[in-house]
Simulated assay, not measured.
Amino acid sequence: MTGDVDLSTAFERVELPLETPFTIARGTQYTAANVVVRVEDGEHVGVGAAAPSGHYGESAATVEAVLPDLLAAVEDVADPLALDAVDARLDRVVGNNPAAKAAVRIACCDLAAKRLDVPLYRLFGLDGTQTVTSSFTIGIDDPERMAEKTRDAVDAGYTVLKTKLGTDDDEARLAAVREAAPDARIRVDANEAWTPREAVDNCEWLANYDVEFCEQPVPAEHPEGLRYVYERSAVPIAADESCVTLADIPRIADACDIANVKLMKCGGPRQAVAMFHAARAHGLETMLGCMIETNAAIAASVQLAPLLDYADLDGSLLLDADPYDGVPIPGGDVDLSGVERAGTGAREA
């Protein structure tokens, strides 16, 4: 079960249409390009996926460009359980490129857990009874359409909603969402759209709509702006674009309440776990988010739910169709206690 194993690897790009166009402050997305990775030991197949973001300097093309070197490194390590060695080798072979590394590391974690015949959360020693509820995202649209999307989400059983803001009429949009979901927990995400002064002013009226927290209200390149808002905000502040890797945790510790970690930003599941522990040590709450991803990636994030205060793991739900199934999260409720499928839980649909 340990020692040298003859591993084979492969990858393929998948173009995934979205169910409806998805708009945030930076633009509108119609499709998601993911790159699916497989690592095989002759008996088991580990699956992962990259969901690269141009905002962090990656694309499907850059992922495809570095994957041959990354996968060759995995084959060279030749031990599916030597995850430390794999991590170190990947970082030596390729700099940055976190989504590409995340795809490989997810596949390796999936394979390692399958070889031990345990779900990934058990491989990490987590308590599957510790649950969290994921939010469902309402993208930017006109207020009437956002209200319609909200009603659909509530009818589908979602009790936690994340509303994208960053327009010239944000309050009207949030008011429409709140009216359509008077009992829901609502979070907002401005995706860096506001100035610090605008953010402080906006957080005043956000509080009037019983908003749980505001995510990344100001541009990440101005860390003093995030601290300015945090010190004056009427609602808690979450850092997303300002919280990319482990090194960012101490930098944001006095500038927000919540650290939003994503596998595609930090480079993989074990890297995310390190960030959660560091965030706790710095007095921050923890959140795990996602890009628009196939379940080949999202399933690994779901397995980390016991470490979270908040979750935003709806990326695969925004797709028109997903070639992979994952861990079911009906209405956003994550409960791993009954999950017995080994690995991340991802499997071909």
Rank of each mutant, 00 (worst) to 15 (best):
A300V: 03
G3W: 13
L116I: 05
G27S: 05
I252H: 01
K162D: 02
G3S: 13
A102W: 13
I140M: 03
H282T: 00
Y30A: 04
E19L: 08
G54S: 14
L304M: 13
Y228W: 14
A51L: 03
V94L: 07
A25V: 03
A113G: 12
N96Y: 11
G48F: 07
C243D: 06
I329G: 09
V235Y: 13
D152K: 13
I329E: 06
A279M: 13
A49S: 07
I329Y: 10
I186W: 15
V327F: 07
R115L: 07
Q303M: 04
E224G: 07
R347N: 00
M291L: 09
D79K: 01
L126S: 12
H44Y: 03
E192A: 08
L67K: 08
I106H: 09
G331C: 12
T31A: 08
R173T: 03
T131Y: 03
G268F: 07
L319T: 04
N260F: 06
G267M: 15
A153L: 11
A297E: 06
A103G: 12
R270M: 11
A238N: 08
I237V: 14
L336Q: 14
T344R: 05
S301T: 02
C109T: 07
G128C: 05
H277E: 15
D91R: 03
P196N: 03
T20M: 09
N34A: 12
E12H: 12
Q130V: 01
D240T: 05
H277R: 13
R270Q: 10
A297P: 08
L16D: 05
D84N: 11
Y230D: 04
I138C: 03
M264I: 10
E340I: 09
N295R: 08
E19T: 09
L81M: 06
A274M: 12
S337K: 14
A311N: 11
K162P: 01
R232I: 00
E215T: 05
T159D: 01
D201H: 09
L90A: 01
E179V: 10
A10C: 00
G283A: 05
L90R: 00
D84A: 08
D320T: 08
L71C: 03
L284I: 00
W194F: 14
A349F: 02
L174V: 12
E15N: 10
S59E: 06
A102H: 15
L165C: 07
S301K: 01
Q271L: 05
V200G: 04
I298M: 11
G128I: 02
P21W: 11
L90S: 02
T131A: 03
P223Y: 04
G326L: 07
E40D: 06
D333M: 13
D84H: 10
H277L: 14
A321I: 00
A85I: 05
V86E: 07
A274T: 10
F22N: 02
A297R: 04
L263H: 15
D155H: 14
N96D: 15
A25P: 01
K164H: 06
K164A: 01
V45Y: 09
G125C: 10
A220H: 15
N202W: 00
A25F: 07
A113D: 11
A193K: 04
L288A: 10
P217H: 10
A73T: 12
G332R: 12
